[in-house]
Write a protein that binds this DNA or RNA. Structure first.
Lengths: 129, 129
DNA sequence: TTTCAAATTAGTAATGATTACTGATACCAT
DNA sequence: ATGGTATCAGTAATCATTACTAATTTGAAA
């Protein structure tokens, strides 16, 4: 099971890296299809999973039932717009002390956390809906 | 579409309220079936969704691909054991200032957040696996 | 450069969670 | 008691994701 190069995997990774939003497998599929018209959705999923497992991508689950993929692999928080569903990275550093804070009076051991922030993105604010 | 009483819905809500862990729809189904052997999984889902929409239950998505339901409807953080997958409530208050903190240098408007903490639960710590 | 085993692919079938549909039943105001 | 409608059980459909398989691609050794 030594890893072998594949042009499809390369294109998938390249595409995710160009995006600041957090494309779903289907969005990746739709776009990579322009370069590889016969690529299959299974190939996209397999490679996204592979790249995530290798730590070259982040698999993101923000609770909308679809997996999203993020080329920014450093730990960070996410913002989800309640209006349009868009997902953005937030630039504040991870609050490490939050782990200890949450562990007060808790019997187990807390090692990490993730957080999602909700509200309106700048676009939806502008269109004041 | 006035709401009508149903014994099934009552039993579903009752069951979730007795539980401190966060049962999935299937777990609710398995248990309510003891009282209503013919209840269908669809009925369980419909009522869990209805109760969540009415704000009497919380629908929880912690990223394991299954929806969980929580009778503790006040906002609170969750802990997920990386060992056994169990989900527990954390008793610390929501850190409201986190919203403003995260909004620094962000163009949109942050109204709320959720957070999940990961590690080992007390049970798995005890069995030091 | 040819060769060949192993990894990867495209295509498709299978899975698992959830939702939608339908005719029968239960609730409840009149 | 009755009639209208919400709810039900049962089942089919959907959606995201994973698994399977025969054919193709890769890359290291001959």
């Amino acid at each position: 099971m030594a890893l072998k190069y594949s042009r499809q995997r390369e294109a998938i990774k390249e595409f995710v890296m160009t995006r600041l939003d957090h494309p779903t497998a289907d969005e990746v599929y739709m776009n990579v299809r322009q370069e590889f018209p016969n690529i299959s959705l299974g190939t996209v999923y397999r490679n996204l999973t592979l790249l995530s497992d290798m730590g070259e991508l982040l698999r993101l689950r923000v609770g909308d039932g679809v997996d999203r993929f993020d080329a920014a692999i450093h730990p960070h928080y996410h913002f989800i717009c309640q209006e349009c569903g868009s997902v953005e990275d937030l630039n504040i550093p991870i609050m490490e002390s939050f782990n200890d804070h949450a562990g007060k009076g808790f019997g187990g051991q807390i090692l990490s956390h993730s957080a999602q922030f909700y509200g309106k993105c700048s676009n939806c604010l502008k269109n004041n809906s």
